[in-house]
């Protein structure tokens, strides 16, 4: 019994190390005084200072955050409506429809990127924030759709029936019964979609325009000249923000329970 516990502990530690050690290294090196990642040049806030003064990088970060916020907002609404709608239909095509709705995240990104490039060019649209938001919304919807659908499947449908039976109009039932019950799923789906939108390179590159450079595209492009330690600093700040959001969402979901 005791030995078993030891193995599982070691396993847990190993997996956590694998997941967090690289992140820890990035955090440590964001405070490295040297430009080289193999040499420790003393503790310094130099890269954080550079980061704040790097207006191009900040602009890209802003573009990425706006893009993630807009595409998540739109896809949260569309995905939720879709999930609620699909559980109400009893057609034979339902299974087929469900598959169609989640296909965008199964298609390889590069293909989706090319498809959007060809499509927007065909329509003669100007490449920029609008095309970015449309493309990102398309691959963000399935995340929210799947989360909400799973939540709805586990929900007791007699709650809705009871409300309807007591004379509440369907809109009221949705707002007062269904929506509060699925809110945690909507939120976690949206957070997931937000992360997906924020780190997308391939699709973004194909649908972006001349004045909407996004952060991941910029970082990837640094491969040519070497990634600067400012990126380590930025990663550290974004990690801090991510942990904060996760903690907040835990607190919120606790409250809901």
């Amino acid at each position: 019994m005791n030995k078993k516990l030891h193995i599982s502990d070691a396993y847990l530690i190993l997996v956590l190390l694998l997941m967090y050690l690289p992140i820890f290294v990035v955090i440590v090196y964001s405070f490295n005084g040297s430009k080289l990642s193999t040499v420790w040049g003393g503790f310094s806030f130099q890269w954080y200072r550079n980061l704040i003064h790097n207006s191009q990088l900040m602009q890209c970060l802003k573009n990425s955050l706006i893009l993630a916020f807009l595409s998540c907002s739109v896809s949260a609404v569309v995905g939720t409506i879709g999930a609620v709608g699909i559980t109400r239909i009893r057609w034979r095509t339902r299974g087929f429809l469900e598959s169609v709705c989640i296909i965008p995240i199964m298609i390889p990104e590069i293909i989706l990127g090319m498809v959007f490039l060809a499509f927007f060019s065909f329509l003669g649209m100007k490449f920029g924030m609008l095309t970015l938001v449309i493309a990102h919304t398309a691959f963000c919807i399935p995340y929210i759709f799947m989360m909400v659908k799973a939540r709805l499947a586990g929900m007791d449908s007699s709650l809705e029936d009871a409300a309807l039976d007591l004379g509440a109009p369907p809109v009221r039932v949705f707002l007062d019964i269904t929506l509060p019950l699925i809110t945690p799923a909507v939120l976690s789906g949206t957070l997931l979609a937000f992360a997906m939108s924020l780190d997308d390179v391939v699709i973004s590159f194909f649908v972006t325009g001349p004045n909407t450079n996004t952060l991941p595209v910029k970082i990837f492009s640094q491969m040519k000249t070497g990634v600067t330690p400012e990126i380590n600093a930025l990663c550290t700040l974004m990690l801090a923000a991510t942990f904060l959001i996760v903690i907040l969402s835990r607190l919120i979901s606790k409250k809901f329970k």
Partner: peptide, 18 residues
């Protein structure tokens, strides 16, 4: 300023009508 990663990506972008 906008960025790309590989020459091939850049060419694809250049070939699209916009």
């Amino acid at each position: 300023i906008s960025n790309f990663t590989t020459n091939e990506e850049m060419l694809t972008k250049l070939q699209s009508s916009e």
